[in-house]
């Protein structure tokens, strides 16, 4: 366990160093997403029903920050694995006596931390721009967010596994953007079966908290069961898929850039 703490320390540190060192990249990412948001916001002003403008805006803010968060975390994972396999650092990571999936987990934690911070900035920027204030009930947001993140990490592991095997995952990640958009934007009331998809339940509950002012007590045990079950399911699937890909890679000599 203490070894894992060191792994966690250096991987989080690495993510933050790179974010700081490449601050222009980080800022332009932030700007891009802010512009996407503005487009959505004004789009809704033009085509939407004026009577519902306020709640529509709130929907957009919540949906798009979660879309950002899920997409960036997954893309960073896939991108990092692909790049490190091509560079030759992936093999170095696999030579650590600490299992590679733990190192990956630490890395994903680092990415989650970064994109969560950016997400907070985006939320505030959007709220200031639109003058629509969400319910930021920290006591309810944090537990639900953490459980939502579990299933996202599970999906990150699946992406990481696929990246180890196929390397060229750019096209796949492009498509993923749209799938994630659906997950973040389509409410469960419209597409109930999406409850099986990763983190959709979590985002749905976040909407209830942030838009309708729900507290933890307003959800039923069914809600929580879905949320927790979804997280555990994707976490387990993620690790299984990742480890199978890893074993395949070691058998076929795919860890390097041959």
């Amino acid at each position: 366990m203490s070894a894992f703490l060191q792994v966690l320390r250096v991987n989080t540190k690495k993510e933050f160093i790179e974010m700081k060192r490449y601050l222009p990249n980080t800022l332009s990412l932030l700007a891009t997403f802010y512009i996407i948001f503005l487009a959505l916001f004004f789009g809704i002003q033009v085509v939407g029903d004026p009577a519902e403008a306020s709640s529509n805006t709130q929907y957009i803010i919540v949906n798009y920050v979660f879309w950002y968060f899920a997409m960036m975390t997954l893309q960073s994972t896939g991108g990092a694995i692909t790049m490190e396999a091509m560079r030759g650092t992936l093999e170095q990571l696999y030579m650590s006596p600490v299992s590679a999936w733990r190192i990956l987990l630490a890395r994903v934690f680092g990415m989650v931390a970064i994109h969560l911070s950016i997400m907070v900035v985006l939320i505030f920027a959007s709220m200031v721009t639109t003058g629509e204030w969400l319910h930021l009930n920290i006591g309810a947001i944090i537990p639900i967010l953490l459980l939502t993140i579990i299933s996202m990490i599970g999906v990150s592991f699946i992406i990481a596994g696929i990246s180890v095997i196929f390397k060229q995952v750019d096209a796949f990640l492009q498509i993923l953007q749209f799938i994630l958009m659906a997950f973040a934007f389509v409410p469960l009331s419209v597409a109930p079966y999406l409850v099986f998809a990763p983190f959709v339940k979590g985002v749905d509950m976040m909407r209830h908290v942030m838009i309708h002012g729900y507290t933890l007590g307003d959800f039923t045990w069914v809600d929580y069961s879905w949320l927790v079950g979804n997280g555990i399911f994707y976490a387990i699937i993620g690790v299984i898929v990742y480890r199978s890909c890893e074993r395949l890679a070691m058998n076929k000599g795919l860890l390097g850039h041959y």
């Binding site: 203490s2 070894a3 894992f4 060191q6 792994v7 320390r9 250096v10 991987n11 540190k13 690495k14 170095q92 990571l93 650590s96 006596p97 600490v98 190192i103």
Partner: peptide, 11 residues
Amino acid sequence: EYFSGNRGMRK
């Protein structure tokens, strides 16, 4: 520091 930390080495 990164690579040694990944092997569990303390700071």
